[in-house]
Design a protein around this nucleic acid. Structure first.
Length: 113
DNA sequence: GAGGTGACTGCGA
DNA sequence: CTCGCAGCCACCT
């Protein structure tokens, strides 16, 4: 793990997000060590989506639980639809009970350690 | 090599 | 409460 770009690192973490859970860009950034650059996570997703559209990017939202990046999907409504299919509640582009479904890689992945 | 961009975040007014 | 500004860093042209 040295030649991997930020995109690939983000890709792996996002891919590890369990169904029905969501995380924030800041959480991923913090886990990757670049906590100061939460923007890079979102930027990475944009690039990763182009090379691999199978990534559950709908599980990645901003720290408010708001679907900020929904417009980057095939359709803006697709992101909310995917989240609802996973059992999440979305209202006004915002995830209901967000903290209850929040999945922090820095905690969940570091738990076994 | 340098400049521009961005799916964020936190703090101040 | 809402709105605005600055910092942050990797990737692309």
């Amino acid at each position: 793990m040295e030649k991997l770009t930020f995109y690939e690192q983000v890709y792996q973490v996002v891919h590890l997000i369990p169904s029905g859970r969501v995380t924030s860009y800041g959480a991923i950034a913090s886990y990757l060590g670049t906590k100061g650059s939460s923007r890079m996570v979102g930027y990475a997703m944009n690039g990763v989506l182009k090379i691999n559209s199978s990534i559950p990017a709908q599980r990645v939202v901003n720290r408010n639980g708001l679907l900020t990046g929904k417009f980057h999907f095939s359709s803006p409504e697709l992101m909310q639809q995917l989240l609802e299919l996973e059992g999440l509640e979305v209202k006004d582009d915002q995830i209901i009970n967000f903290k209850s479904v929040f999945w922090d890689p820095a905690i969940e992945l570091d738990l076994e350690k």
